[in-house]
Design a protein around this nucleic acid. Sequence first.
DNA 1: TGTTAACTTATTTTT
DNA 2: TAAGTTAACA
Length: 814
Amino acid sequence: MDLVIQCQPMSDPTHPPADAFDDPFFAAAAADAGAGAERSRAAERLLEGLNTAQMDAVSADEGPVLVLAGPGSGKTRVLTHRVAWLIEVFGVPPWQIMAVTFTNKAAREMRLRLERLVGPAALGQVTIGTFHAICARILRIEAETLSFDGNFVIYDSDDQERLVKRALDEMNLDPKQFRPSAILGAISNAKNELVRPEAYTPATYWHEIAGRVYTRYQQLLRNSNAVDFDDLLLETAELLRQNAAVRDKYRARYRHVLVDEFQDTNTAQYALVKALAAAEVPDAPHNLFVVGDEDQSIYRWRGADYRNIERFRRDFPSPTTVILEQNYRSTQTILDAARAIIDRNAHRTPKALWTERGHGQGIQLFEAYDESEEAAFVVHQIEKHVRSGGKFGEMAVMYRTNAQSRTIEDALVRKRIPYQLVGGTRFYDRREIRDVLAYLRLVHNPLDEVALQRVINVPTRGIGDKAMATLHAAAGACGVPLWPALQLIAADELAEVSPAAAAVTVDARTLKALGSFHDLLARLIAAREQLDVTALLGAILDNTGYAKHVRDGTDEGEERWENVVELRNVAVDFEAMPPREGLAALLESVALVADVDALDAKASADRVTLLTLHAAKGLEYPTVIITGLEEGSIPHSRSADDPDGLAEERRLFYVGVTRAERTLILVRAHRRTVYGTTDLREPSRFLLDLPVEVMAEPPAPATGIRGTPVHSRGTQWGDRGRGGGSDVGRTSGASRGADPRNVGRGASSAGGPGSAPGGASTFRPGDKVTHPTFGEGVVVTASQRDGDEEVTVAFVGAGVKKLMQSFARLERVR
DNA sequence: TGTTAACTTATTTTT
DNA sequence: TAAGTTAACA
């Protein structure tokens, strides 16, 4: 069976070699003895060091393959070895292989590891990329068959929101009632489900409005010659569905498709993969190799549907199925804990994670009084770790929401502990970067109205609301986008277009302001043909006055300028290309790469990592501290009302737990201040699922403590959760005992061995005290306010002096 | 046109 | 609480 390859490689301008036209499987069978020997050597090399399940996956026959990969089970290894296997053992030409990931980071990782296996030459021919990057490439190549221009720009969420606001504004809709972000969410959901505006069927009045906005939004996008992230997937999936010629071309080209993180695919992505892998063509080999873990699906709110794994089983009957259960990351104790958590989720293939690493230490649970004590405890653990020879870089602190990082950051800063925050404001989200990019985009594509609106008056050029109203009026009257309208105004040719356009009055001052902006942009557009990207960027910064605008003499201005310089460094990579191409490539790269890898050199430094549970996926640390294990945070209050949401929160916790290699520390606070109000917090229901066997022994109570150990064991949680009278972990500090608001639920049930005394005893400076975590100390200051006692204590432990405020469980030493 | 004061609204986030 | 937005004001 010979296959005719009709298309050229996308990634590589060179044509496929002539001998690549052979079908790989038959070619393999017919290979001569010499090649056969070489292949068996390759096979041996590629299977070396793998476990049986991994070998099964890597060496699976043609046809659909489903790999269910537990956390830490060597999934990336399997994926890369599989690609190498296809090339070196099955003799598949590398350009017939497509490997799809969700993030650039995963794509990069795969490339890196694959290079070591197959060498740079073969690697260069394999298509490896994110869904979005691959789709963008296909759409640009197939532009002539599409209804929009192949030079499209890619709008990110900020651009999208501006467009939705514009649409709402035009339609006279109240942005309060129809919040742009919510509308955008509805639009995104529709697109992820492959629903175009005309097919959108609203369930409510609100959705009916959302549907209308969707229609207008889509027009505005196309007017600007722009697509959004969801469009990349939808348009590509639809293209492959509707255009048989294009579909066949890519099917013929990509005989092998591999997908990572399959549980995170949405409907559009699934459709895409399915179309490429020829699911509905019975005789074609369905060479689709997917790797996923339904237990690590944490992006449901983004349209991800782990049930695509089930769909895969249905659409690609009897796939080779491999379950990777051996874990190479964590201790058995951590795996047992993880399993106890995840086993409570329904609709999943149970996995029994195991390791040869042994049990290691028990899981610690600390109950802080409030978030500042939580932070103090975190700091304490970090210092302890480092004091005993550990490194900052071995530790990670995880939380549910970004806002929770603040108190921890504060504590770390005070103690001068080096840390690295994952997330936060991304480089490309900074105002100055967005401004400069808007100029670049505008020069590349003057129809980009979001970009135009953004910079037309930055720095100020006397183009305010009035001038913009005039411009919009002119555009409307002429029936053209803003840029052509601006050209007409500048050339004073409005009157020649139509009577309506002639009626638009442009006063002298407005004409001058608009005219000079037009000339500026026109000059830059002319320059884009001559100057390479870096030079063009320099010209923009000088001629628009933006450089001066940013460097306003303040420190902040300098910082912003440094970011601009950083962007210029990114542009240097595209300098060698022909001017237009370089500009286009830079913009594409910037749109599809969220994190600037060139910038995170500091990531490798020895720092504690702070990150959300979501951001933790795919990472691992010797010690993991998960904070905020309370109802309302984990599970988050927003997910509390629906079972699917709760199941996802459970998976999120599971992901966090399985990041730990050796030490797992869980922290909750009795009370937490959120949005300015302090609430008592119940322990997370997920804590109740931890069996007592996986928990560490609670440390001996500190001297003089009438209360209870800080660390507790699982079953005690159980008692507590069911409303039992256990007082475990209760704040028993004499300083707090008098205030019922300060006492957790377990404690409010009277009695128990450590019941708080009736009256609050007042500390005085000089008093010796103990704290279960921080040991002995001396009171420095003490004051009373609203029945709450504020105590500052100098702890002297292991040569480190700590100054803390507001302690629970503080006891005077007699 | 820029500044200030009142007012609103709060997950998770890659592409 | 705090950030971000809008409305009112100089």
